Amino acid sequence: MTEHIYDEECRRFQASAETVGKRWSGGILMALYLGSTRFSEILGRVEGLSDRMLAQRLRELEAEGLVERDVIPTVPVQIRYALTERGTDLMRALQPLAAWGQRWGTPARV
């Protein structure tokens, strides 16, 4: 007997895949997972990513609850980004996909 895939499961899977699969999101999440915290560090790790697009994607990932923004009131003000618990859990779940990509994937197009 096989299990049926229900509409709600499909919608949740599709929404998750679209969040991660959106251009630049995966690279940004990976940079944060590897320890980058500042805007410039993330920008330096994700080749081809513009300032404007990084700012937009960080806002989207923050709205999804995957990234948190911490404003440190120093002079000048420092802003640091980090994965939330939800974001870290997502990156752990994606590790098998990353391993598959290392073995079978083609080089990414920028």
Rank of each mutant, 00 (worst) to 15 (best):
I72C: 05
T88M: 10
A15S: 11
R57G: 03
T37G: 12
S50M: 01
M91F: 05
P107R: 07
D70G: 01
L61M: 08
T88Q: 13
T2N: 11
T74I: 09
E18Y: 08
R109I: 15
T84I: 06
R59Y: 05
L43W: 02
A55V: 04
I72R: 06
V77M: 08
R52M: 07
V67T: 05
I72G: 03
E9T: 12
L29W: 04
G101R: 10
L83M: 05
R57Y: 05
Y81T: 05
R11G: 02
G101E: 10
A82S: 14
E64R: 09
L90E: 05
G21L: 07
V75H: 08
I5L: 13
Q14R: 13
G21E: 04
A63S: 10
I79K: 01
A55K: 11
R69V: 08
R59M: 10
C10R: 14
E41A: 08
E9I: 12
A98S: 05
R69H: 03
L58D: 00
G44N: 12
D7F: 14
T74H: 00
T106G: 07
C10Q: 11
A31I: 04
V46Y: 00
G48T: 02
Q102A: 15
E68A: 11
I72D: 01
V77Y: 03
H4T: 14
A99N: 08
R11C: 09
R52T: 15
L34G: 06
A108V: 11
G48F: 07
V46K: 02
E60Y: 08
A17S: 09
I72E: 00
E62G: 13
G87N: 03
G105H: 03
G65H: 04
